[in-house]
């Protein structure tokens, strides 16, 4: 059985002289929640458009469920997507928009429409036209549209944008539920903390290139941990640390950051206190997904 539901091989997209995606090769495991991370203009949406058939790659290839090239047409119906803003007819109701999609997919049963509307919390919209929907409601309907044909792979581009905290929480629960029911998810998001709560795999894209692809477990292991010491005698403390063979540290504004040595906090504290240094605070800080991402992509680089 195919382990990966989606594999891309050096997918490239060039607009004029600008390479939006540059030889991107990702592997999405079946059943995973794959977080695609990158800043605005990194190439996430372009990649998603290519794998959902909305954009033609300039070069490279990809396969869905093992189908590639001309055989991709056999796999298209297994992919649902919500790319950028939801595409909805403004003069139609939620039901009618979904009915259009059902007719296109060959789904005859209106029960499926009611089921999906209920799943996304829009079953009470009645005759309200989508032009009058709030942004959150449109997002939900967009998700419903992508779910109607029971996809095995769901590609969501910034689905949490514009949602309030309650909406984000409900959305997250819905995505986890979908994943537990066997749907593989590819999600791009700027809200890294939210992504970190659900993603099992990550692909970090920067300036059109894939800089890292990893699982959540590997990322956790790789994320750098530091010992943080707050003291008013930071200069003296630095000398003490140097004498105790701890050299990989930085000092600024009364705070010392020691890279690694997270199992030696007792020894470090003892050495400092013995030297008469008042330690206000000492703790271990693990690098968050955001910190890791910023470190990989150059932080505040424009």
């Amino acid at each position: 059985m195919e382990q990966y539901i989606l594999k891309t091989d050096k997918l490239t997209k060039i607009f004029g002289s600008h390479k939006t995606s540059d030889s991107i090769s990702i592997n999405v495991r079946k059943g995973a929640i794959y977080g695609l991370i990158g800043r605005n203009g990194a190439g996430k949406t372009t990649l998603m458009k290519m794998i959902t058939g909305l954009s033609n790659p300039t070069s490279g290839s990809y396969s869905v469920k093992g189908y590639s090239g001309t055989e991709l047409k056999n796999a298209r119906r297994f992919v649902g997507s919500l790319i950028e803003a939801p595409g909805l007819y403004p003069d139609m109701t939620a039901f009618q928009n979904l009915k259009c999609k059902c007719l296109q997919c060959g789904i005859k049963d209106d029960e499926r429409i009611m089921e999906v509307l209920s799943l996304v919390g829009l079953s009470g919209t009645g005759k309200k036209k989508t032009a009058k929907f709030s942004y959150g409601m449109k997002q939900r309907l967009g998700i419903a549209m992508s779910l109607i044909d029971r996809p095995e792979l769901l590609v969501l581009d910034e689905p949490l944008n514009g949602l309030d905290p309650q909406g984000i929480h409900e959305f997250r629960e819905m995505l986890l539920n979908l994943n537990q029911n066997g749907i593989t998810l590819i999600i791009s998001s700027h809200i890294l903390d939210e992504l970190a709560k659900i993603a099992t795999d990550y692909g970090i894209i920067h300036k059109g290139r894939l800089v890292e692809e990893t699982t959540a477990e590997e990322l956790l292991a790789r994320c750098e941990s530091k010992v943080i010491i707050r003291t008013s005698g930071s200069e003296k403390a630095a000398n003490i640390l140097d004498r105790t063979s701890i050299r990989n540290f930085t000092v600024h504004d009364g705070t010392i950051e020691i890279h690694g040595h997270i199992d030696e906090t007792g020894r470090i504290n003892s050495a400092l206190v013995s030297a008469g240094i008042v330690v206000d605070e000492i703790y271990v800080k693990s690098e968050s997904l955001e910190d890791h991402y910023l470190r990989l992509t150059g932080g505040n680089e424009s």
Partner: peptide
């Protein structure tokens, strides 16, 4: 033109076989 202006075309153009 409504297909493009509303973006609804995104919902089906990627899933057709040809």
């Amino acid at each position: 033109s409504a297909d493009h202006s509303s973006g609804f075309i995104k919902n089906y153009a990627g899933s057709v076989s040809d």
